[in-house]
């Protein structure tokens, strides 16, 4: 509801434009500082702020709600471990967490791909629809889920950020550490590939 309607129009500034992005980075540094003490308040605040973002991202890529919960929790646990060990993010906390979640998902998908008996997209397509799938139209939802799993990791990443987490182009570029034009190109390729994958799935 609170999104700007046109992220790229002349004169429009996305809410996370330069100034705010700088402010957010300084806030993330403050969050990291407070987290280093492993104080329950700071830990609770970090969880409240980032768990939903991580869950949505993982849910979008994996489809499975319990796997998404595991990924979101594990990414935050790894953050605590890294911070306690004196390492962890140095610039963007959100970028670090989403990058960790992406690696966890890639590992998970690699393990699932290693199953010799059936392909992953067929496995997903054969799974029963979740209640959410029922609400949205199970056939189409399952086709999209199966299609997403046939994309490259980069393509999944950009679609999960833009459509799963609803990040703006500029936010996505910051997380991916790419220029906005590169994100636009990657997004176009990802959508074209998704469309092809869905068509192949249907035929």
């Amino acid at each position: 509801m609170c999104q700007m309607l046109y992220s790229d129009c002349d004169g429009c500034t996305w809410p996370l434009g330069g100034l705010l992005r700088g402010q957010r980075v300084s806030e993330e540094r403050a969050e990291l500082e407070s987290l280093r003490a492993l104080d329950p308040q700071a830990v609770s605040l970090i969880h409240a702020r980032y768990f939903p973002q991580l869950y949505r991202y993982a849910r979008y890529r994996l489809g499975d709600p319990s796997a998404a919960e595991d990924v979101a929790s594990e990414a935050l646990v790894r953050l605590l471990e890294a911070v306690a060990a004196g390492s962890g993010p140095t610039s963007t906390l959100r970028g670090w967490l989403l990058g960790t979640a992406a690696n966890l998902i890639n590992d998970s998908l690699r393990r699932r791909y290693a199953k010799p008996e059936e392909g992953l997209s067929e496995e997903i397509a054969a799974e029963g629809p979740t209640p959410h799938d029922h609400a949205e139209g199970s056939e189409m939802i399952r086709a999209v889920r199966a299609g997403i799993l046939r994309l490259t990791a980069d393509q999944q990443h950009v679609l999960a950020l833009r459509f799963g987490s609803e990040y703006s182009l500029e936010e996505t570029a910051a997380i991916l550490r790419k220029k906005t034009n590169a994100v636009k190109a990657l997004q176009f390729r990802a959508l074209a590939a998704l469309r092809r994958a869905m068509e192949e799935q249907a035929s």
């Binding site: 979008y60 919960e69 979101a72 959410h132 939802i141 999209v144 799963g164 869905m198």
Partner: peptide, 22 residues
């Protein structure tokens, strides 16, 4: 494809998942 991709989003996060995670 984008319309289909958008249909996957905007799902509520189960409250129990958040509590377990915290």
């Amino acid at each position: 494809a984008a319309q289909a991709a958008m249909a996957l989003a905007s799902e509520e996060i189960p409250a129990a998942a958040g509590i377990r995670g915290r």
